[in-house]
Design a protein around this nucleic acid. Sequence first.
DNA 1: AAGTGGTCTAGACCACCGA
DNA 2: CGGTGGTCTAGACCACTTA
Lengths: 246, 246
Amino acid sequence: MPASSPASDKYTQSQPLWARIALALRGRVLAGEWKAGEAIPAESALSEFYGVALGTMRGAIQSLVEDGLLERIHGRGTFVRGGLTGATMLRFFRFGSAEGDVPASRIKSVKAVKAPALAARELLLAADEQAICIERQRCWGGKVQLLETLWVPHGPFKALLDLDKKDFSPLMYPMYAERLGITVNRAVDELSFDRLSAAQARTLDLPVGHPALRVERVAFDLAGRRIEFRVTVGNADHFRYRAEIR
Amino acid sequence: MPASSPASDKYTQSQPLWARIALALRGRVLAGEWKAGEAIPAESALSEFYGVALGTMRGAIQSLVEDGLLERIHGRGTFVRGGLTGATMLRFFRFGSAEGDVPASRIKSVKAVKAPALAARELLLAADEQAICIERQRCWGGKVQLLETLWVPHGPFKALLDLDKKDFSPLMYPMYAERLGITVNRAVDELSFDRLSAAQARTLDLPVGHPALRVERVAFDLAGRRIEFRVTVGNADHFRYRAEIR
DNA sequence: AAGTGGTCTAGACCACCGA
DNA sequence: CGGTGGTCTAGACCACTTA
């Protein structure tokens, strides 16, 4: 940045200076110069490095904070945000008594497959492109409560195929981070209602055709790439969600 | 503000200067000094009035923008935000063909009642306090699609009792603004799953016990007061909602 | 052209954190 | 204590909108 667009060229670029610096900073984060959880240099150091005023540097950092890439802690520093923890599917459901229960996770299968049409579309994969399909169940209170099917692109995730089902972490996103170096930074859930198929009903111990909440989730990494598509199905009677408008 | 806490007292208050100014500004908006849709004075004028630097004034305004109270438009000014339009219940549903259709609204009844327990709790009313209950239906494609029951506190809304059912606007919130001077600034929706009662099923032309989405909404005015509680019920098969995590 | 918000500078000092 | 981010100042000039 200092060489390619000197700060003395005020107001001559199409983007504000703080936005260009934010872009450069984002690039350095994505390139792995500072890893998740680590601190980036102090504002003063960065403002000197880029040859801009402190306020401008703060603006650049602030935009990345609002974007979810960085996190500022007063008195300590500015940190690269860790990814999502993944325990977030619970926010759509209320399971009565199972408060202290640890939500268990059971992997049923991990297979290399041709991505089906829906998954290929959501992950922006070419037709017939290879993917990995993971099926798992999530349990609370000793009962299977959620059925999940996940697809991830084959390339960056192929190490999962060599992993024993027992060694999968109950939370996928921290596992992606530790084992593959892939950070899930953002996810979009699409909710709809459905009815349980015969197989689903059997596993969930509910009648066939019972109302179900269906969540289709696309997860994005730090660079904004689509790295996981997931379909979760659960008993609609336990659905509860709070949305705010303004 | 200029008299009660001069700007020269730097850093001696528990709140930052910009926060105290934001509070003062919010008070002037709530007092009606500038109405919804109107512009407030320019940053430069306000910074002079409060005796602070321009950057501090910008910070105060920015906080109110993030709060949804103000809106800045480059080159034009800073405006008091109009309230919600109210067409927002549609975001939970997809009604296939009825794209060009104007969503119709039919008021079934407007009555002064003792607030039932649920409504009283959500509106923070005392037990047995008076409220106004409004029942209405919303239609698309020539069919009744949503059933709504609304409760509003009696005091500020009593003018609604003198209004003919035909004169209700299809959108409640703009009507609150025009007829009562009450601006809905924020609303919280709680979604859950239910089944249609016999009466509901008849009106919606669906089987009894058919899966239904239930939305309980609390609406807040500019001052943060709870001014409306609303229960909306519709066919769960048309439910669709997008949520984002980060 | 005049007025608005948006960007940027070059400082100063305050509040928080950890060693 | 030294280092971090947070607040604040007093300017200057840019970009957008309206008349």
